[in-house]
């Protein structure tokens, strides 16, 4: 049997404030193979903090403990900052929500992509440019030569996010963590960006962790889904079974969505059960 790409065992994240300590992630465990794993949950469920801890990008006030946090054979908890810098970008890449804030506004789009490649590969500038142009083409940008020389403010949100994807995928990472990559985009553009991401993930054979609050999107896009609530994993199930989820929280979350196929006078509101927070997990 091959080693999993990522192993997370009993991950806990505490935030120490002056007045109180918050236990944001509580005993999260999962393994990731060559698949697309969705992590869904509401604000504060710990989904983004889980993603950040894997990159070791948690804020300084966070204390992270785990029985295991392994990327391939590398122990991410024990890795030095230097080792982490070598891993970030080239082995594990992260795509964030809004391209407006994650692209450098003063550097042309093409240069940023080429730079991402040159940071991790020893190649000439000309070769990096070739690769960047090819990458722009593979994220379905029609005129890569023109787009190469424009600045981030000149592109639309959908194109900006495709540029982000190009930049993150050009070093050919083994694991991609996408944190709400399409929530800033319109519905029609969203599909297009996701299909680009899907195509590249399939082609490069990378694994994907897709963090989102949107159940429908995750069900549509991922192979497997973790449902998180109050820092814990409530349910781990194949994405196609999300509609038949067992856990009362997952069910309640699905029920609370307005639906096109069933008109309802009132939407069911989630009645939170304390045992979800404290009880034993199935």
């Amino acid at each position: 049997m091959t080693d999993p790409v990522l192993t997370v065992e009993n991950l806990n994240i505490h935030f120490h404030g002056s007045a109180r300590t918050t236990h944001a992630v509580r005993g999260v465990s999962f393994t990731l193979g060559h698949e697309k794993l969705g992590i869904v949950g509401e604000s504060g469920s710990g989904k983004s903090q889980t993603g950040r801890a894997i990159m070791r990008l948690s804020p300084p006030s966070a204390r992270i403990t785990a029985d295991a946090l392994r990327f391939g054979r590398t122990n991410l908890l024990a890795a030095s900052e230097k080792q982490m810098r070598a891993i970030r970008g080239s082995e594990i890449a992260m795509i964030l929500q809004d391209p407006k804030f994650s692209l450098n506004p003063l550097m042309t789009v093409g240069k940023q992509i080429a730079e991402a490649y040159r940071t991790h590969h020893r190649v000439s500038k000309a070769e990096a440019k070739e690769r960047a142009l090819a990458m722009l083409e593979s994220v379905h940008i029609r005129d890569p030569k023109r787009v190469y020389d424009i600045l981030p403010h000149e592109v639309s949100g959908g194109m900006g996010q495709r540029i982000m994807i190009a930049m993150m995928l050009i070093p050919e990472p083994k694991l991609i963590i996408a944190d709400e990559p399409t929530s800033a985009l319109d519905v029609t553009v969203r599909r297009q960006v996701l299909s680009v991401l899907d195509e590249l993930v399939d082609r490069t054979g990378a694994s994907l962790i897709f963090i989102s609050h949107d159940l429908n999107l995750v069900a549509d896009f991922c192979d497997r889904v973790l449902v998180m609530y109050a820092g814990r994993v409530m349910e781990d199930l194949p994405a196609r079974d999300l509609g038949r989820a067992n856990h009362p929280y997952t069910r309640a979350l699905l029920e609370s969505l307005p639906r096109l196929d069933q008109p309802r006078a009132e939407l069911p509101v989630i009645r939170r059960d304390d045992t979800w927070r404290t009880g034993a997990l199935a």
């Binding site: 509401e42 309640a252 969505l257 009132e266 939407l267 989630i270």
Partner: peptide, 14 residues
């Protein structure tokens, strides 16, 4: 807003 909170607010507006 989160979907669970969305449901509460939409019910309130209704």
């Amino acid at each position: 807003l989160d979907v669970s909170v969305q449901a509460e607010i939409l019910n309130l507006l209704t």
